[in-house]
Design a protein around this nucleic acid. Structure first.
Length: 264
DNA sequence: AGAAAGCCTCGGCCGC
DNA sequence: TGCGGCCGAGGCTTTC
């Protein structure tokens, strides 16, 4: 089963990074893909050398390393894993078989004490950033309040987009990935196509509670891929709640599974 | 062989 | 008709 770094996984990478708070960076490296958001890949090496890590943070799926200089950001794409030396941030968080290949290490940081923080990413969609712009991201999905949730679901005009598309919009709520979105909608009994304007207060409440329960339970279970509806996430899948055949469509650019019987 | 759970860009469409 | 913003589609990339 492929496992992708959604917000819960990135939060565990953040905790892993707590171990390097206080350490001095002696060297940084990033290949052309990992450094794609920078002026050049060499920018990373120049910018990080000599910095002391002073803290860790996270906004949605963006991991932040605070330093005595610029804040460093790491995004993990679909297959990125953070390793401290050889210890994975999440045990076995790999795409496909649990393998490690040296050539999939796209970059990282080396510390004065010899430890190394490595970005392992087969599919090359992970990125590093320097002083990432947090204004582009909405409130964090793990701590969002009901009030903030209502703001995030506000409609500018017309019926608004499908609820699922809005949940995935990182500028509205930071950190809801495809799996979390489908799981929360499944738990709340809401059809992912529902236009925002047609979500009454009761359904917003149900969805907010479902988002909270989803992040909490899946964190306890150990990952974003351990949701109740995951078993139904395949061709011919059946709703684990009532046995109905799951519907499949692309919504908000992502493959969406839902149960037409209890999600409406 | 086709589909993939993140993110980015582009183009079309809508409303002012 | 013009413009800007919004939204969905498609691309990136490699893997199994």
């Amino acid at each position: 089963m492929p496992r992708v770094p959604e917000i819960l996984e990135v939060e565990s990478y953040r905790r892993l990074c707590d171990q390097v708070v206080g350490a001095r960076i002696t060297r940084g490296f990033a290949d052309a893909y990992l450094g794609k958001k920078l002026a050049s890949p060499a920018t990373w090496a120049r910018a990080v050398k000599g910095l002391i890590v002073t803290g860790t943070a996270r906004r949605g799926k963006l991991l932040l390393l605070e330093t005595d200089g610029p804040t460093l950001g790491i995004r993990f794409g679909m297959t990125g894993v953070l390793l401290l030396d050889t210890e994975a941030g999440i045990e076995g968080l790999f795409y496909g078989p649990h393998t490690f290949r040296e050539e999939w290490v796209r970059g990282g940081l080396e510390f004065a004490d010899g430890r190394r923080l490595l970005v392992h990413d087969p599919r090359r969609l992970a990125r590093v950033e320097i002083e990432p712009d947090l204004d582009e991201l909405g409130p964090d999905a793990l701590t969002i309040t009901r009030r903030q949730f209502d703001v995030a679901l506000a409609v500018e005009r017309g019926e608004g987009p499908a609820i699922k598309a809005r949940l995935l919009d990182q500028s509205r709520i930071a950190g809801v990935g495809n799996l979390l979105a489908d799981e929360a909608l499944f738990r709340a009994g809401v059809d992912p196509h529902t236009p925002l304007a047609r979500l009454d207060d009761a359904r917003r409440t149900a969805l907010y509670r479902a988002l909270r329960s989803t992040t909490r339970t899946l964190a306890q279970r150990g990952g974003s891929h351990l949701g109740d509806h995951m078993a139904a996430r395949l061709r011919g899948g059946v709703c684990p709640r009532d046995g109905e055949s799951m519907a499949i469509a692309t919504i908000g650019g992502r493959t969406t599974y839902w149960c037409p019987r209890h999600q409406h």
